[in-house]
Design a binder for these strands. Sequence first.
DNA 1: GCTAAATGATACGGCTGCGAAACGAATTGG
DNA 2: CCAATTCGTTTCGCAGCCGTATCATTTAGC
Lengths: 116, 116
Amino acid sequence: MAIDLKAEQALKLWQEVSMAMVHGNEPDLTLRQFTILLTVYLEPPPHTVRGLAMRLGVTKPVITRALDTMGALKLLKRRRDERDRRNVIIQRTVEGSVFLEAFADTVRTKARDLPR
Amino acid sequence: MAIDLKAEQALKLWQEVSMAMVHGNEPDLTLRQFTILLTVYLEPPPHTVRGLAMRLGVTKPVITRALDTMGALKLLKRRRDERDRRNVIIQRTVEGSVFLEAFADTVRTKARDLPR
DNA sequence: GCTAAATGATACGGCTGCGAAACGAATTGG
DNA sequence: CCAATTCGTTTCGCAGCCGTATCATTTAGC
């Protein structure tokens, strides 16, 4: 059964989740950073800088910088591809999984309590 | 009937909507700006700088700056409160409504097509 | 082997948002 | 009336992200 949302419900869901993120003490990622994070966790590996840049439709430095930032936060990590040492493989971390699981939980709670 | 999302669905929904926003040519708002926009459109008026600052848990200059930015984009507008001229009332615009309706539509479409 | 191509990182200048503090205008209250 | 309060804005120095161009390293092609 498909998830059926009314327009008002969609907006309310986004507002409440966004509000929770603003209120929370977590580092606030930019839209691009968050999209990269979700993509790495949800789409099949391997993930490279170039691949992510194409997937998001942004330039490579955007990915490199986002990896610097989120790497420092331990939300993602880099590894050199030993079979082609030009490539960098982007991988998940435990901290990133925990972060996204908490986020998913927020979304689920807000969705469940949405007025109909 | 409550909206029931699995954790993976919640994340996938966020990823696809975020990806659509990154791909789109619209100006990308910060998380705070977007939260302010949604709050003004979804919660009962009147909205003031101070009220929004308290609601979001941020300082007043954050609101002022966000209104400068989103005002230039015509997503929101300011009006002096004539009954107490210290106050500024923040109001919706046609452009803002169109913007959020399009956004809601994206969310609805992505939610509907979510794998179960 | 040696040039050309591919990959990710870096340098640069510019723009935008941030928090803290100070400010001007408007209102309140004694 | 006039000092204190309230409200939104502005200023300041700082930090982060942006796109473009360039770089070093590694691989591919001939």
